[in-house]
């Protein structure tokens, strides 16, 4: 059912997503025990191959792997001596030659997990590639919404901010639409990707209209240093027009929840009161991230390697 690698939400079916979310719900229980460790992946090796630094996502994968008793090795290519003149493909092949059972890849350029997955015999999980996808974030967001609301189908989910540069937005758009939610996006015109409505969303340039009647509002982090002056005039104008506060949230459903993939620019895209308020499920997202990644490691680690798959096919034909 689920493919060998997890590269994008675009590739996953509704059944795949349901299976992952169900497995994650079981994993949550382990995190509540005093001894948070089960032997499921004992003897398995998982490599976190991070070409782009990300303490949060890497830690989440690391804790997830350790709770399942896997040996987790962090390979941070940005601090590695290999990175100086070695190509990404050579780095990936080097890691693969050590026979890991699973490789988690993060890179600042879209498509790198895909080309690495094509070259490696180990399964690959995409932990974020450029502005393309961040499927594990979307899945943990969906788990969070499902548990807060009891369902995903029929909900209205509004994603606000720099959709153009956001892999989180793309993955969530694919995921929530597949699960039957209505997805809206809101951003200044300079941050709306061309042709985004082809993905099945409704695009708004008015925050108010976009969050009116919403069940879920997901705020994206704005890259202030890089984009100010180019794609929006000033932080002040951005936070006035697209930043979320409790007052602005009043047009949403009364039980609307507020999400953010972190790290938050407090007072820019999200006000203090909301970040810490009862509407916020931001820390739930982080907590669920560990359970969700445990589920993925469990489901994807130890899948037959490419060679074994070929061998198995050979046996079947005998």
């Amino acid at each position: 059912m689920i493919g060998r690698d997890l590269l994008s939400m675009e590739d996953l079916s509704r059944e795949d997503i349901e299976k992952i979310l169900d497995t994650a719900a079981h994993m949550q229980e382990i995190g509540q025990r005093a001894v948070k460790k089960v032997p499921s992946l004992r003897g398995r090796t998982i490599v976190n191959l991070f070409f782009e630094s990300s303490t949060r996502t890497r830690m989440s994968f690391e804790i997830a792997g350790k709770r399942l008793s896997a040996d987790v090795i962090n390979f941070s290519a940005s601090s590695s001596s290999l990175s100086k003149s070695e190509s990404i493909m050579d780095t990936a092949r080097t890691v693969d030659a050590m026979d890991p059972d699973l490789v988690v890849v993060r890179h600042k350029v879209a498509g790198v997990p895909k080309i690495i997955a094509d070259a490696l015999s180990a399964p690959v999980i995409n932990a974020g590639d450029g502005a393309h996808e961040h499927p594990t974030q979307a899945l943990l967001d969906m788990l969070t919404v499902k548990q807060a609301k009891g369902r995903i189908a029929g909900l209205t989910v509004t994603i606000v901010g720099d959709v153009l540069h956001s892999r989180v937005a793309r993955s969530n758009i694919y995921g929530f639409i597949k699960m039957g939610a209505e997805v809206r996006i809101a951003a200044p015109p300079t941050m709306l990707p061309p042709g985004i409505e082809a993905l099945g969303v409704k695009a708004y340039t008015s925050l108010r209209q976009a969050i009116e009647g919403a069940d879920v509002v997901m705020m994206l982090r704005i890259q202030m240093e890089r984009l100010q002056g180019a794609l929006f005039p000033s932080v002040r104008e951005y936070s006035e027009t697209f930043g979320l506060s409790r007052t602005k949230l009043r047009v949403a459903k009364p039980d609307c929840i507020v999400m953010h993939p972190g790290p938050i620019n407090r007072g820019v895209e999200l006000s203090h009161e909301l970040a810490d308020g009862g509407e916020s499920v931001i820390l739930e997202q982080v907590r669920n991230g560990v359970a969700l990644r445990m589920a993925l490691l469990y489901l994807f680690t130890g899948r037959p390697s490419k060679d074994e798959e070929v061998a198995a096919l050979g046996e079947e034909t005998k």
């Binding site: 675009e10 042709g195 082809a198």
Partner: peptide, 12 residues
């Protein structure tokens, strides 16, 4: 630039 660049997440 267009639906394909948006799907790929690459600059258009």
């Amino acid at each position: 630039e267009g639906p394909v660049s948006t799907r790929l997440g690459l600059p258009g």
